[in-house]
Design a protein around this nucleic acid. Structure first.
Lengths: 208, 208
DNA sequence: GCGCTATCTAAGCATCGTCCAGATTGGCTC
DNA sequence: GAGCCAATCTGGACGATGCTTAGATAGCGC
């Protein structure tokens, strides 16, 4: 038959790549990373288990596409945070808080993003050029007034990024619950930790 | 037959739990986390695929045992690092370097350790009482001369731990290679990042 | 309107985690 | 020392997974 039945999709989907990525993200949000099988994605998209292989080489390549979207959305979140204040010290803390909040609000997506990175032993390349990593570096540079050596700037960015990632992975840990309550909520806890990090102390300590 | 053939083990292994954990660790080191199936572990231990279920409830419980050993060994590594110098500032950096080096030298084991933690949304409990986390907290307390509030001490420990974990997960990333070369090796790179973190700046900045 | 080719399905393979029924045997009781 | 219980281990099975292959379908350029 040339057209689909009332229930089923037409034989050719139209935009399966897009639909598969959307299905994957829906499963991630709903059931978490453990439930994210290629077959489940195909099921969610209403398509046979083999169909995805015409759009992605394997499961890893699908996850790569999902991760790519995640990094893009993280970019946006950091851009917003960076523009949120004029105070150079607060801006840096806001950036950190925004980073961790993104991970907290999209835990499964964030996990996929970093799992892919670890498999490749590398962060996505676009981060360095105009992405989230670049935003952190620029913010540090602005805070320091521009007179920082390239190597110091890079080290400070790495330090900040690692701290943010570590906190992002652990923000939900049960052991932190009492401290969060004591400090008046999760965001207050986050700010306190970031301020304790004293990162960029090298550049901003004299302004204290 | 009552005894085993020349090739095979006796019907009852004797200490299968131990052998299974060892087999799992061997597979982790040799082939990485992706190759770590329960069946492969059983194969490595020379036992049927169902045998492990008489010693561990499921695969997760086996991994839990592996992770437990990993945390214990991390404790030892940090103890050694902590005793390596009298200088309070250097001691803290040494602790961080030792942490990351452990992760670098046991990447698959470290991954299992944290994967288990994320599944439970908690670090292992013994860390708080007399384990690695406790060592970091004590070292910070010593550095600060003891006059730190409980809450500040906790925040600083969390900050340090998160930074260490973040760096541990990314130390192998390709993007850092040029910087490592420029600084004269991986350990020099590590020290530089940790010093840039300026963590505990709150407690030690005045000693600069 | 024809055919090329991208897209999709159906069926199958090896592997996985887990369970069950039954074989084996170490160690306690008498 | 004999006998039995319970812990341990095997073989086989089930459903699910990632991926491949052969063949069905249909959009699109000519």
């Amino acid at each position: 038959m040339s057209t689909a039945t009332a229930e089923s999709r037409p034989y050719h989907h139209g935009d399966l790549s897009r639909a598969l990525v959307d299905a994957a993200r829906k499963i991630l949000e709903t059931d978490g990373p453990a439930a994210l099988s290629l077959r489940a994605v195909a099921r969610e998209a209403g398509v046979s288990p083999a169909a995805p292989y015409h759009h992605f080489k394997d499961k890893a390549e699908l996850l790569e596409a999902v991760a790519h979207e995640g990094w893009h959305e993280l970019d946006l979140a950091l851009s917003t945070a960076r523009a949120s204040t004029q105070d150079s010290r607060a801006r840096m803390t806001n950036l950190g808080v925004a980073y961790v909040c993104f991970a907290r609000d999209n835990p499964a997506l964030y996990r996929v993003m970093y799992d892919r990175s670890r498999d490749k032993d590398a962060l996505p390349d676009q981060l360095k050029d105009d992405g989230a990593y670049c935003q952190v570096r620029n913010t540090i540079d602005e805070n320091a007034g521009g007179g920082v050596s390239e190597i110091d700037l890079e080290l400070a960015t790495i330090a900040a990024w690692c701290a943010g990632h570590g906190l992002a992975e652990m923000i939900g840990f049960k052991q932190f619950a009492p401290l969060k309550a004591q400090l008046g909520g999760e965001e207050a806890f986050l700010r306190a930790v970031f301020e304790h990090l004293g990162m960029f102390a090298k550049f901003t300590a004299t302004q204290d």
